[in-house]
Design a protein around this nucleic acid. Structure first.
Length: 166
DNA sequence: CGTCTTTGACCCGCGC
DNA sequence: GCGCGGGTCAAAGACG
C-alpha cells in the first residue's frame, strides 16, 4: 500500500516545479483507518455495476447489497498544492463545500478502466499549509508515469511513512 | 479534436 | 415530512 512511485508533470508544462511543491512531510497524523464490516470480504474493489441510470437520465445509485465499506486511508500532508500527483491519472468529478471549512473539498477518481479508486482532497482553512488527502480503494494497475527527481521526494515520503508507522 | 475541469442539479442517509 | 450535509452525475466550457 502506499506505493507511491513518481509523478511528473508533462515536460511541456512543468506546472508543478519542485520549488513550488514543497512537500514537508513532517507531519503526521497519518490516520489510516480501515472500515470493513462484511463477513469474509476479501476484495475491496467494488465490482462496479452499482450504478443504474433511469431512462430520464437521472441517476439512481443502487447498492442494496454489498454493504461493504471500502477501506479508506487518510493522509495529512504539508503542502502548498492540494493536487499531490502520485503518478496516477485523476479526473475531478465534484467539489463541495464543507461546513467547518471555508475551503471546498475536491473529489477525484482514477481514470483507469476498472479502477474505481477515489480520492478526496481537503485543506484546512485555519492552516492552508495542511492538506488532507483521503484515498479510497486500491489501484490494480501500474503507474503510467515515471520520471524525474520526484522519485526522490516520493521515496522520502515512503521513508517517512515507515518512520511514522513504527 | 480529445481530455479534463467547472458547476448546478440531483440523490441519499440521517436527525428533528 | 422536511431540511441539512455529504457524495455523485453530466452538460458545457476550457485547455492542450
Amino acid at each position: 500500500m502506499f506505493s507511491y512511485s513518481s509523478s511528473s508533470p508533462p515536460s511541456s508544462s512543468a506546472a508543478i516545479s519542485s520549488s513550488y511543491l514543497s512537500l514537508n512531510m513532517l507531519n503526521n497524523n497519518h490516520a489510516s483507518y480501515e472500515q470493513m464490516a462484511g463477513p469474509g470480504i476479501g476484495s475491496v474493489t467494488d465490482g462496479g455495476g452499482d450504478e443504474l441510470k433511469t431512462v430520464s437520465g437521472k441517476v439512481n445509485v443502487r447498492k442494496p447489497e454489498k454493504k461493504v465499506k471500502k477501506p479508506k486511508h487518510a493522509f495529512q500532508t504539508r503542502s502548498q498544492v492540494d493536487i499531490l500527483d502520485d503518478g496516477y491519472r485523476w479526473r475531478k468529478y465534484g467539489q463541495k463545500a464543507v461546513k467547518n471549512n471555508k475551503f471546498p473539498r475536491n473529489y477525484y477518481r482514477c481514470t483507469h478502466q476498472g479502477c474505481n479508486v477515489k480520492k478526496q482532497v481537503q485543506r484546512l482553512s485555519h492552516d492552508d499549509g495542511v492538506v488532507v488527502t483521503t484515498y479510497e480503494g486500491v489501484h490494480s494497475h501500474p503507474i503510467e508515469k515515471s520520471t524525474d527527481n520526484f522519485e526522490n521526494i516520493l521515496t522520502q515520503m515512503q521513508i517517512y511513512s515507515r518512520l511514522n508507522d513504527s
